[in-house]
C-alpha cells in the first residue's frame, strides 16, 4: 500500500517534470542562433524567398503562439511534422527509439552481467589478485573514450578477424531486432565503456558487507555457497543498482559516438542532427522522449532498490 502511494507521487512528479522540460526545451531552441528558415534557404536565397519559407514553416508566428499550438497538438497525441523533411515526428521518434533500444537492451544486460559478476568476485576478496587485475582493467576502460573502444573493436572484429559486419545495414523492410549480428559490436562497445562504474560501486559495497559483523555471523553460522552470495549481494546491491540505472538512462541518448561509428541511427544521433537543422518539433519530441525514458529507468531503479532494501531501513532512505 505504501509502495502504491509512493509510486503515484513519483509518477505525478515525473509528469510535472516533463511539462516543465517541454517549456525549457522550447525556450532553448528559441535562444539558439538561427532557425530552420536559414538552414533551408542556404546562402543564396533572396529575402522574398526566405519570407515564403518562413511562412510555409509557420515560423512567422510569435513563439508563445507556436508553443501553445504545439502543447495542444501534443496533448492530442500529435507531435507535429519535421520542419526539414515533412515527416511525422512521432514516426521518426518511434523509429529511432526502436533502433536505440535494439542496441541498448543487450548492452545494458551485458553491462549488468559484467558488473554483477566481476564486482561481486572482486569484492569478496578485496585486495586479492583478481580484485587488483579487475580494478586496473575497469579503471582503464572507464578512462577510455567511447570512440577508442569502438575503433579497437572494429579493428579486431572487422579487420583482424573479420567475423562481424562493420556497419549496421538493415535490409529493407526489416528491423535491427531481426539481426543480432549487427548489434553485437555496438552493444559490446557500449557495455565495455559503461559497466566499470557500476562494477566498482558493487565491489566496494560487497567488500563492506563481507567485512561487516552481520556477514561474519552468517559465516560462523555455516552459511556458505549460493546462500552466502545471495546474502552478501542483496545487502550490497542498492547503490550499484542506482548507478546502473543512471548509466542506462545516460546511454539512451548519449551513445552518439557508437551510433555514428556503427551506423545505428538512434535517439542521440537524431537529436544532434535535429539541433543542427533547428528542427524544433523534432528536438521537442526527442528531448521529451529522452526525458521520459530517463525518468522511467530511474523509477525502475528506485523500485528495485526498494525491493532489495529491508523495510526498517527503507523508512530512513525514503521518508
Amino acid at each position: 500500500m505504501r509502495t502504491a502511494r509512493w509510486l503515484t507521487v513519483r509518477v505525478a512528479a515525473h509528469a510535472a517534470t516533463l511539462t516543465v522540460l517541454s517549456a525549457v526545451i522550447f525556450w532553448a531552441t528559441e535562444v539558439l542562433p538561427g532557425d530552420a528558415v536559414g538552414v533551408l534557404s542556404g546562402q543564396d536565397a533572396t529575402e522574398a524567398e526566405r519570407a515564403s519559407v518562413r511562412e510555409a514553416l509557420g515560423l512567422d508566428r510569435p513563439p508563445l503562439q507556436r508553443y501553445g499550438a504545439w502543447v495542444v497538438d501534443a496533448l492530442h497525441g500529435d507531435l507535429g511534422t519535421s520542419l526539414i523533411s515533412g515527416r511525422d515526428v512521432g514516426e521518426i521518434v518511434g523509429d529511432r527509439l526502436g533502433t536505440s533500444l535494439a542496441v541498448l537492451v543487450p548492452a545494458a544486460l551485458l553491462a549488468l552481467l559484467l558488473a554483477g559478476a566481476l564486482g561481486t568476485a572482486a569484492g569478496l576478496r578485496p585486495g586479492g589478485w583478481l580484485d587488483r587485475v579487475l580494478s586496473g582493467v575497469t579503471l582503464g576502460l572507464v578512462g577510455t573514450p567511447d570512440f577508442l573502444v569502438a575503433t579497437a573493436l572494429l579493428a579486431a572484429f572487422t579487420v583482424g578477424w573479420p567475423v562481424l559486419p562493420a556497419v549496421a545495414l538493415v535490409p529493407a523492410g526489416q528491423t535491427l531486432w531481426q539481426h543480432p549480428d549487427l548489434v553485437v559490436l555496438p552493444a559490446l562497445a557500449l557495455a565495455l565503456g559503461a559497466f566499470g562504474a557500476t562494477m566498482r560501486l558493487l565491489r566496494a559495497e560487497v567488500g563492506q558487507v563481507v567485512a561487516s559483523p552481520y556477514a561474519e555471523l552468517a559465516r560462523l553460522n555455516g552459511v556458505r555457497g549460493a546462500a552466502y552470495l545471495r546474502l552478501v549481494v542483496t545487502n550490497a546491491a542498492a547503490p550499484a543498482v542506482h548507478a546502473f540505472a543512471l548509466m542506462t538512462a545516460g546511454l539512451l541518448g548519449g551513445a552518439i559516438v557508437v551510433e555514428t561509428l556503427f551506423n545505428v541511427p538512434g535517439l542521440g544521433q537524431e537529436l544532434t542532427t535535429a539541433v543542427a537543422y533547428r528542427d524544433v518539433p523534432l528536438v521537442q519530441a526527442l528531448g521529451l522522449t529522452l526525458g521520459a525514458a530517463t525518468l522511467a529507468v530511474l523509477l525502475v531503479g528506485d523500485l528495485v532498490t526498494r525491493a532489495l532494501t529491508p523495510p526498517s531501513r527503507s523508512t530512513r532512505e525514503h521518508p
Binding site: 546562402q43 519559407v53 511534422t81 523533411s85 515533412g86
Partner: peptide, 10 residues
C-alpha cells in the same frame, strides 16, 4: 510527403 520545406544550407 507533406508541406514542410527542406534542404540544408546552400
Amino acid at each position: 510527403m507533406r508541406k514542410a520545406v527542406a534542404a540544408s544550407a546552400a
